[in-house]
């Protein structure tokens, strides 16, 4: 139908459209222009190059490169390290993303009440995001250290015997989750902003109607912040699959202990920059891309309909 027509006989297709359609089309293109330029300039070449590499055994320099067809992709299926790295990535993401969103929403809700010292609290929660990760990583190495560690020291005040965190294969991933959740300042700002969109009169109306706290939250607040929850979820999942920096700053990218922190991003990096298997790493990147795309599409499908946009 129209897509085929548009290609076969663009002029006729164009004329067959309503003036409104044509007007919107033109404006749509105008507003998309920077995006098109940006995509063509900064994304097209690297993306196409890496797709091409993924079908070759390219090394760091490209010397002695041959085509290997789909070998890299089929190799991934047999690579147990790749599967375990995906598992680790998933583990961290499934914990870090929801916990991050829930904590950010709780903080935002509390900070949205007219409490004294609001600005002060907000600044405290935002401070971790200001610290360059080079510095915060080093701080957290001290925090998690079982011997000199601040965290276990604080836990001991409450009579808790803390685990070995980054030294313990069972606790290394939870430690990474804690580190990630600590930097939720940006998310908190977004949620706070979203909360400002909840109309006061609706809240008050609900209160007069005798709705309890949970009802008010679920039926009034959540719909209005749902676009931002959606945003947090999607960007969280996209970033979660590419989890890298915390592992680099906290374990030096070794995957220690016992491979417990070897996430896909680090495994990819190791393949490309340590073992120079650039072709293989590119295949990993595109498999990751497909996984992320599928998950994102699923999330849109699951929750997209429930998102309430005031403008529609």
């Amino acid at each position: 139908m129209s897509a085929a027509q548009a290609f076969l006989n663009p002029r006729r297709w164009w004329r067959s459209k309503t003036p409104m359609y044509r007007r919107n089309y033109k404006w749509g293109l105008v507003f998309a222009t920077p995006a098109f330029i940006g995509l063509a300039w900064f994304f097209a070449y690297p993306a196409i190059a890496s797709i091409v590499y993924s079908f070759s055994n390219r090394t760091m320099t490209g010397a002695k490169t041959q085509w290997v067809g789909g070998t890299n992709y089929s190799g991934l299926f047999k690579d147990s390290e790749w599967w375990s790295s995906l598992g680790n990535t998933f583990y961290i993401m499934v914990l870090a993303v929801p916990i991050g969103i829930v904590v950010a929403v709780i903080l935002a809700l509390l900070l949205n009440l007219k409490v004294r010292g609001q600005s002060f609290y907000r600044t405290i929660f935002f401070l971790p995001s200001i610290l360059p990760v080079v510095a915060s990583g080093v701080v957290w190495l001290y925090v998690f250290n079982p011997q000199y560690g601040v965290l276990n020291n604080v836990l001991s005040w409450f009579g808790i015997n803390g685990p070995g965190w980054l030294q313990d294969p069972n606790w290394a991933k939870p430690a990474l989750v804690i580190f990630s959740v600590w930097g939720l300042g940006n998310l908190m700002v977004i949620m706070l902003a979203g909360l400002q969109e909840v109309p006061q009169d609706l809240q008050e109306q609900a209160m007069v109607d005798g709705a309890n706290w949970w009802h008010r939250f679920w039926h009034v607040t959540v719909p209005f912040i749902s676009p931002h929850l959606m945003f947090a979820l999607i960007t969280g999942v996209i970033a979660g699959f590419q989890y890298f920096t915390p592992v680099y700053v906290l374990t030096n990218g070794s995957g220690d202990p016992a491979g417990a922190t070897m996430v896909s991003g680090v495994y990819l990096y190791q393949n490309a920059f340590q073992n120079f298997k650039v072709g293989y790493a590119s295949a990993m990147a595109w498999v990751l891309f497909i996984i992320i795309a599928v998950c994102t599409a699923l999330l849109f499908k699951l929750f997209g309909k429930r998102v309430y946009y005031g403008g529609e």
Binding site: Q147, Y148, P163, N170
Partner: peptide, 20 residues
């Protein structure tokens, strides 16, 4: 053993300096 600290680069001094 899971609660023994590993070596730098994270730490200013090697744990040996702690005297334990």
């Amino acid at each position: 053993v899971a609660k023994l600290a590993t070596t730098p680069p994270g730490l200013t001094l090697h744990p040996f300096a702690g005297g334990h």
